[in-house]
Design a protein around this nucleic acid. Sequence first.
RNA 1: GGAGAGGUGGCCGAGUGGUUGAAGGCGCUAGUCUCGAAAACUAGUAUGCGCGCAAGUGUAUCGAGGGUUCGAAUCCCUCCCUCUCCGCCA
Length: 422
Amino acid sequence: MLDIRFIRENKDRVKEGVIKKGEVPSKVDEVVHADERRRKLVQQGEDLKSRKNAVSAQVAKMKANKEDASAIIAEMKVVAEKIKVIDRELREVEETLRSLLLQIPNLPHPSVPVGKGPDENQIISTWGEPFLIDFSPKPHWELAEKLNIVDFTRGTKITGTGYPVYVGKGAQLDRALVNFFLDEATANGYTEVFPPLLVNATSATGTGQLPDKEDQMYVVPRDDFYLVPTAEVPVTNFYRDEILAERQLPIKFSACTPCFRREAGSYGKDVRGLNRVHQFNKVELVKFVHPDNSYEELESLCHDAERVLQKLGLQYHLLLMCSGDMGFTQAKKYDLEVWSVGQQKWLEVSSVSNFESYQARRMNIRFRPERGGKPEIVHTLNGSALALPRVIAALLEHYQTPEGKVIIPKILHEYTGFEVIG
RNA sequence: GGAGAGGUGGCCGAGUGGUUGAAGGCGCUAGUCUCGAAAACUAGUAUGCGCGCAAGUGUAUCGAGGGUUCGAAUCCCUCCCUCUCCGCCA
């Protein structure tokens, strides 16, 4: 969420940003109004409390001197009642204010193109050699089925649609890629963590999944937990309610977890094969950084994600998301899309974002400036490096042979232990 | 899951209704001393919110939320968490 003082002092700028995000600006006025009411109540309540405290001290003194204090005690009874009423009202206003603040999106960074939808995203760069073999490449689901490395049918039997079973070299390939990605992250200075796969509501709210994307998460109602839709949630919450030392920054974490997504509302061609599944492995990179250089950290995070695609030799392009297509909590976001030669389309395999202080303020993650002074909110960033199923899809398609085999790229040999599938 | 104990500042730990935001110790920071360091001594050392240009000031916070009271770290209720023993278990 945004800083209430910032909103108070930059109402028009905030509204402008909200509009760019494609959200309704009227909430901003509601926030400002609720904030005014809150401050008035705080003032009233504290004036009364101040008096109460002074008189209570007086009562203590009088009792110590064995004087009669019943008169002022009676008077304070009324004051105490007033305080209770004001506090109750204040609590209501604060609740309203918080819920309104949660409904104000993060503002887009000035470098973000203004736009409404995917068509207005900018292609920043394209990398890689096109597929140059003289036969028509098959989509990954045909290859996978024929090679017997992903069993979609049995996955549906075991759980439901969108839960493929990786089998044999398919399972080994997934594991090899995970290890490769994690090793790359470690080499780039990230500390590997393995977090819980279920989180509580506070954590889910901290990163912005709640209340915004509740429908996308699997819920465990009996224990009031949520299955993680991405490692971002547990990993970013690692430092919730903590004050870090400035010299600790930047802190860089990597984590591989299964990601559970209900994908409510998805249908049709998009969900074919490994394009969109309910459970998948993903290596996520998370950074806690100094506000002064979060945009440099965003670029380097993006390069960290790109590098693994390059090492795999897969064709991809880098998109800068426009204001209307980047999501509620981000200030700036890049997507990496890999080319699926069997489907002749781009598949999103990574999304790299700077949240500035938006998540960190919700989570109350701060650092103590070396020079002294008040703790400041850190900036948080994250990016996938990478999401497995679509990488596997693109890889199978890109490295297929006319006979329907798949040649494993060299860099993975030490991880897979085999060089060809089929 | 059953029985019991307990949750106080960065850490340890005192405190069972009245100048207790909180003794004492450790740690940390600065100063004195020293060629330098250690030791010793001195001082400082939480966070949020409101008001204020600021200095500052008011208020809140002793796991969380309610309640009793003129007044709560201290009493009552609910919840959460930790520890010990038993049970179950990868």
